[in-house]
Amino acid sequence: MTAPDDRARSPAGGTAYHLRGVGVGLPGRAGLRCVLKDVDADVAAGEIVGVVGRSGVGKTTLLRVLGGLLPATVGTVRLFGRPVTGPPPEAVMVFQDYAAALLPWRTVARNVALGLGGRLRAGERRRRVTEALELVGLADRGGDHPAQLSGGMAQRVQIARALAVQPRVLLMDEPFGALDALTRAALQDVLLGIQERTHTTIVFVTHDLDEALYLADRVVVLGGEPGTVALDLPTELPRPRHQLRTREAEPYLRSRHRLGELLVSGTP
């Protein structure tokens, strides 16, 4: 289905993720239930990849495998050439449920500092926190507690927390799924702005086809039961993206049609 090894077109170059024959079984009522099967995929460094598919197809499971939070039952998962056996140092995950993923007893700044362990000196830690909060546009909210923030702000704090550790790869599980349409559009642009500056590789899961197309260089559709890669579609849209013009561009509409056809009718 995919042979995108030659598709590396990022400034950094090289392959970030390399997946071959990945299958995942999760313990269910009748032994192992196969959730993913024969997943082959590659993600180039600096690329933005959106993963879509019907609910229950294994999108989140795939992302957890990429993040080293869940071991693949069979197959190879490599990140920058090294096998993924646990959470890799290069990748950080951002979760959908920002309210549950932030520590309510810590201020925003101290939440962002959570991943900056004893390895850094206090001054460097403070600088990283300030920088990350500036990237997501929350420089003045460092002293607040998560309960004082709106949903959009809370999710930006989670993104800042991930950015503070300066990951090469950002994994996002339906990052904007719980937000209203306007907030979501604003955060999509915040994310694209950050990626433009940091060249971070991003793999995100979404149930929103438009979000996948708008953000990604490539959309991977998971389908079937157990889930596997049903389609790997380069979006071929120019950057920077524009909330109105991009969504009205001809390639966008063509890809949108293709994805819609696949996910609604189930036949590629």
Binding site: L69, P87, V92, M93, G115, G117
Partner: peptide, 22 residues
């Protein structure tokens, strides 16, 4: 919550830090 354990893992907090901070 499991989610907080996920957070600790993805940020690669040591066992001691996970206990102390979360």
């Amino acid at each position: 919550p499991d989610r907080l354990r996920d957070v600790a893992r993805t940020l690669r907090l040591s066992a001691a830090r996970t206990v102390g901070r979360i």
